[in-house]
């Protein structure tokens, strides 16, 4: 059913801490590893060992450079996967009913047996969260590891998405963002979690925690004032050279 549910009982999703992410891509590898051999068609690669390798990924880590008005530039590693939007535009455009949003937990899924591979859902997604698998001809997307989180054959500690389970920095959190008392909701409230491209009106469930402000020099050490050796005007030989060159 491509009609979005009026209400979902829970809003399962991810909270991604841009302050903590070190850009190691472990989540990308864990995601590909789990999802290539579980839910649906494998995540194929093309020309994997050739000159122009390409493949299907449900999670990719970008890196951005942010240059503030004053101060040093900052590098922000930016993992991006399906945001399981409340107003998911990818679901309503689907002509076959293969794309759907679950009313019980809000997870957006693709029933691959119904997918005709038209690609319109990928066009409708502003975030690039859906990728057509070149080998299987069906649309692949993050399932929030629906085959892990409810899987009672796994130890309880493993019943979370593979990307969250593997993150060595603790930059990824999984939980119910519809429950204001949940750990993830409180984290979002405490850290001022944000939506990506809110002007698209998609109401993403996944939230991003912005990087925290960097330390400033004043806070470094009480000895810091004694550590300012830089002379604006050169002295000694360099000073003579500077003056001599000026006179030329």
């Amino acid at each position: 059913m491509t009609r979005l549910p009026d209400h979902t009982e829970r809003k399962l999703g991810l909270v991604i801490d841009l302050d903590t992410c070190v850009g190691c891509h472990a989540c990308v590898v864990a995601c590909k590893g789990w999802n290539t051999e579980n839910y649906g068609a494998p995540l194929s690669d093309q020309d994997a060992y050739g000159a122009e390798p390409s493949g299907t990924f449900l999670n990719r880590v970008h890196s951005y450079e942010v240059t503030p008005e004053t101060g040093a530039a900052q590098l922000v590693h930016f993992p991006k996967s399906c945001l399981h939007c409340e107003d998911a535009p990818c679901v309503t455009v689907c002509p076959t009913g293969a794309s759907y949003k679950r009313s019980e937990d809000g997870i957006v899924l693709v029933n691959e047996a119904d997918c005709i591979g038209c690609g319109l859902c990928a066009w409708a997604c502003p975030y690039g969260a859906r990728e057509m698998d070149a080998a299987a001809g069906v649309m692949k997307k993050c399932t929030l590891c629906v085959d892990r989180i409810y899987n009672e054959t796994l130890p309880e500690i493993d019943r979370e998405p593979a990307c969250v389970r593997t993150c060595p920095a603790g930059a990824r959190h999984f939980g119910d963002l519809g429950d204001p008392e949940s750990d993830v909701s409180q984290l979002v409230a405490a850290r001022g979690g944000i939506d990506l491209m809110p002007e698209q009106g998609t109401k993403p469930v996944n939230k991003y925690l912005p990087p925290r402000p960097k330390d400033t020099w004043e806070q470094t050490d009480i000895l810091a004032p004694f550590l300012t050796p830089v002379a604006d005007s050169p002295q000694g030989f360099l000073g003579w050279l500077d003056r001599a060159l000026d006179r030329l």
Partner: peptide, 19 residues
Amino acid sequence: LGSRGQVRAFEPPHTGPNY
């Protein structure tokens, strides 16, 4: 990240192309 300064794409997720 726009409120924090000028944002520039530093590095794409993979060196190769994708869908």
